[in-house]
Design a binder for these strands. Structure first.
Lengths: 143, 143
DNA sequence: TTCGATGCAAATAGTTTGCATTCTA
DNA sequence: TAGAATGCAAACTATTTGCATCGAA
């Protein structure tokens, strides 16, 4: 049994609930998201999809990623340069995006807890639980 | 005396120190940055510049903004959609970017203090003091 | 058998680059 | 007067859109 196959089906069920349809292209993209590394760009994901399904177009991947983001299945992280990257939203966590090398470090959601509370209490601003992202320099890129 | 004119000259002095030159286009852009609202896109800034100096091109504005960012004079904030916005880096502060309406709420740097400490201690990641930016929904855009 | 999804092409937004000319230091 | 900055055009990257056709429900 392919690991995560049930997750793919669960997500597709959710897509159907929202009036969407379970198509081969979607199944492949979800499998790719599950199996490969996190934080890949739409283009990288499309390349991986195309390895198994050559005629799935980049625009289809964008369309699907956009929907999955709406459904809360994937997160989109936009660093200060370059394309946005996508990954499965398996748990609430934040991102430390290195402005030097572009690497993304995931940190548990609690690290952002104090900030989220202060933003809510002080400004009525509700921090999105899946879109934390702050810039800086990672351990390997200190001057 | 124009308020902030001395700041313009101080920045230009800094530009010269780094081998740059004080040109009219730069003077105008700095004045525009000082006088108008914060968090404008390159295009909006170019429009404001062109009101006074019609033949300053958008590409020149981009080039200058990039240099000012290197010098730490302006910050660049990239929301989840749309163009990056720029503003003077007058004090350490963070940004709450609304993913619904695109508005940017500034919050004092201390709000990010706990997060910055946790990132440094736990991951060796030094959060950039001027590039805090987290997404969510502002007070006016709650569902 | 209807309506959403796809293939494909083309358009768009934002930003960067190349190069001859102009101007600051 | 040397080298940086600019005007301008054009390239480029990331993303979105339009539309006829196809396929899932």
């Amino acid at each position: 049994m392919v690991p995560g196959a049930d997750l793919v089906e669960r997500v597709l069920a959710r897509v159907r609930e929202h009036g969407g349809r379970a198509t081969p292209a979607r199944r492949v993209l979800l499998t790719v998201l599950l199996e490969g590394p996190a934080h890949r760009s739409a283009e990288e994901l499309a390349a991986a999809v195309q390895a198994g399904a050559p005629d799935v177009y980049l625009s289809t991947v964008y369309r699907h990623l956009e929907e999955l983001e709406r459904l809360g299945v994937v997160d989109r992280v936009r660093g200060s340069h370059g394309p946005a990257t996508y990954h499965l939203a398996l748990s609430a966590h934040g991102h430390l995006v290195c402005e030097e090398c572009g690497s993304v470090t995931e940190v548990p959601g609690e690290v952002f807890g104090g900030l989220a509370a202060a933003a809510r209490d002080g400004y009525g601003f509700v921090v999105s639980p899946r879109h934390y992202a702050v810039s800086g320099r990672c351990a390997g890129c200190q001057p």
